[in-house]
Design a protein around this nucleic acid. Structure first.
Lengths: 219, 219
DNA sequence: CGAAAAATGGAGTATCAACTCCAAAATTCT
DNA sequence: AGAATTTTGGAGTTGATACTCCATTTTTCG
């Protein structure tokens, strides 16, 4: 089963209907191009002209689908949230043991290596870029991280219910710590151009969870 | 003893001499203003004019001290690295037990709360902002993180030598994980405007270290 | 088919942002 | 003091960038 954003903030914010199939395709092409460029060079450094060229559209087309750059940025945030949550859903869906946790880690490291650590986390980069510049985007990103955290928390709760984690383990706090390890690890990996920091950060958190397993971890 | 950057990359890169006392003051004012603005709104969104206004200098003054924006950005990176390392040195200097680790955590949380989570980590924000846009700045930031990591590693090694950590604990990996927890926690705190994520992320890592204490942690 | 709606092409504009230039004032040094 | 050097003021230039406008083509739908 493919993951899908059921309640796109953007869809709620902005009319997506009244668009023909061709129109949808053009709009998608714009969002796609904008997302990649903004991930690679930052939001402010990405010009409308860059996006036009990459998407192969004219100015009038872009402004036909988006009132301005700000609106396009929100669409990009939405798109990247969907992408990231798709991967996380894939990696965390039905997670209930340490093997699943290892697969999730490997999934992320694989993706990071594939892009050679360029861009870091699409959500994390946008968050850092937009937190102080665009209050609307900040809230939207905060919600995306909330969902991500919930996904982790649910998985950890399943592990606890299943007896893989001790009773006194706090899935809520552990989810936050795990998410922070991922984000911090990705940032360090991005700046060092080396997947190792992400791997070490996540592995260390997994080790911590093991020490909280009902068995008491390896001693 | 006050912490001081002994080998400023900028100092090595750029002549700082031939400057009169007044000149130094003006230059410092520019770097100071640029650092704050770039932290608050990002590098690309901060205009030279913004900086001129905030520092109270004319265009010719700014270009008298810096060949262009890129050079100023490098000076800002250098300045922020010095600021952050100053705090970290203060928090980690002579660290050799869990009490010190708690003080270090409280120091960071206190600073974060003081600015109401705006801007996040000066180094982390610059790293995310410049990693893909400015290769020179990226290397400079990578070096700063390297120093930070070394500071952590040294502290953890002292703890291990002192018997606070088990023999098999790996200070190198734990330092990376701790740094990632700080960075990830700061990012989440910035986007949620709440110091809790940083606190939880760091506390979880400290808990992990406790589970690696020779005593075997609280059970 | 044919009218209405949607999509597109492309030239054009107004503003902003980085940077330049040169003369004048302040400071340093002998 | 006085020459050399550093610092400063501020108008001006060049190019980039977000956005507009309107005519034309394409698609939808009764």
């Amino acid at each position: 089963m493919e993951y899908q954003l059921q309640n796109s903030v953007y869809a709620r914010t902005m009319a997506t209907d009244g668009l023909t199939r061709k129109g949808q395709a053009t709009r998608d092409r714009i969002v796609q191009a904008a997302s990649q460029l903004m991930l690679e060079q930052g939001v402010a450094r990405t010009t409308i002209e860059d996006i036009q060229a990459a998407a192969g559209v004219s100015p009038s087309q872009l402004y036909h689908y988006f009132p301005g750059k700000d609106a396009l940025v929100l669409a990009v945030v939405d798109h990247q949230a969907g992408q990231v949550m798709g991967v996380q859903h894939q990696g965390l869906n039905g997670l209930d043991d340490f093997e699943g946790l290892g697969n999730w880690r490997d999934l992320m490291i694989g993706i990071l290596a594939k892009v050679q650590c360029v861009g870091g986390c699409p959500l994390g980069s946008l968050a850092s870029d937009l937190s102080e510049a665009d209050p609307v985007a900040r809230v939207q990103l905060a919600n995306a991280f909330e969902s991500w955290e919930a996904l982790l928390r649910n998985g950890l709760e399943r592990m606890r219910d299943r007896g893989e984690l001790a009773e006194h383990a706090d899935p809520g706090e552990l989810a936050v710590a795990l998410l922070a390890a991922v984000q911090g690890g990705l940032l360090l990996s991005q700046i060092r151009r080396d997947p190792a920091p992400l791997r070490v950060a996540v592995n260390t958190m997994i080790e911590h969870l093991r020490s909280l397993s009902s068995a008491g971890g390896v001693r």
